[in-house]
């Protein structure tokens, strides 16, 4: 049995090993049907110039969280939005991949909505995290932030030749299980994609990882393999998730999986702590140092081999 000091030192060592944890957001550039990530605040004009369009993903703002390491999650979300607003190229839209709030409380949704209205972007698309559906199966979330396309809350839309799909995997969770899409949503997804050309670039987003990233901590979705079977025939598929408050990536054929950082607080790397949850030992006053991190990714689509490149600084 470890004592408290061992545990604290271990966490501190771990923290030092992953300093660049907090994310302002990720600027996604669509180039020739292939999605590329740029650090928010670090994208140069040249790299944005040949993109057909861009959007920004932010995630896990956890409005209502008020403990270490971040007693002011509204301020760090606002800082992220300020960075988005400072971009030379205005993103076409924002994606928020869930956990807008910490406890699904009306006042938390109020604050989130007010903050997001400060973003200078055409529109914000949301999917709920498990923190947004507590007590009412997401009724309040969907009332405020839903797209109202399908009764279950999932939706899709086309933007400049790209097909985007927002999925819900935080409802009707079963004891002992992971995230869940459910038969009804899977049938809808299959049908939604059925008539589309394999040349259509796809962007699929949901809160919990849509691959078995670390099931012992619940980081995965029980029926994601079925969803992936519908996506596999497409030449360029990007799957964007949140939930785990850190960047993890995986390339599987033409499908690239990506999890985003949180605007609120980091979580430990898979298996590097007794349990998931906030990493507390962030030096006071240093949160903002970790905003605007570098994250560059380039994926060659429509090739047998995909290349992923990540730079953190």
């Amino acid at each position: 049995m470890r004592d408290a000091n061992d545990s604290t030192n271990e966490r501190r060592r771990h923290f030092l090993g992953c300093m660049a944890w907090a994310g302002a957001g990720t600027l996604w550039l669509m180039k020739g049907g292939v999605l590329q990530a740029q650090p928010l605040g670090g994208a140069d004009a040249a790299s944005a110039a040949d993109a057909s369009f861009s959007f920004v993903q932010i995630s896990d703002s956890h409005i209502g969280f008020h403990k270490e390491p971040n007693p002011d999650v509204a301020a760090t979300l606002r800082a992220s939005l300020n960075m988005i607003n400072a971009q030379s190229t205005r993103p076409d839209f924002l994606l928020h991949t869930g956990d807008l709030t910490h406890l699904s409380r009306p006042e938390e949704f109020d604050t989130l909505g007010q903050l997001m209205s400060e973003a200078r972007s055409g529109k914000v698309f949301y999917v709920p995290g498990e923190h947004d559906v507590i007590g009412d199966n997401g009724a309040e979330f969907f009332r405020r932030f839903g797209e109202r396309q399908q009764a279950g809350g999932w939706y899709s839309f086309d933007h400049r030749g790209v097909h985007l799909v927002g999925l819900i995997n935080v409802l009707n969770l079963q004891a002992g299980g992971l995230g869940s899409l459910g038969a009804e949503q899977l049938a809808w997804l299959k049908n939604d994609l059925a008539g589309r050309s394999a040349d259509t670039p796809l962007v699929v987003f949901a809160h919990m990882p849509l691959w078995p990233l670390y099931p012992p901590w619940g980081w995965g979705t029980d029926d994601s393999a079925e969803a992936m079977s519908y996506l596999r025939r497409f030449g360029s598929v990007s799957v964007l998730n949140g939930h785990i408050h850190q960047i993890q990536q995986k390339v599987e054929g033409n499908i690239t999986f990506y999890t985003a950082r949180s605007t609120a607080y980091p979580q430990p790397a898979p298996g590097q702590a007794p349990a998931p949850g906030p990493l507390k030992e962030v030096p006071p006053g240093s949160l903002h140092r970790y905003l605007g991190i570098r994250d560059v990714r380039h994926v060659q689509g429509r090739q047998a081999l995909a290349v992923t490149e990540e730079v953190l600084s």
Binding site: E130, L173, Q174, A175, G176, G177, G218
Partner: peptide, 12 residues
């Protein structure tokens, strides 16, 4: 009586 955490369902 089996129970779980409905937002972290691996907790049983």
């Amino acid at each position: 009586y089996a129970y779980y955490c409905s937002i972290h369902p691996m907790m049983v």
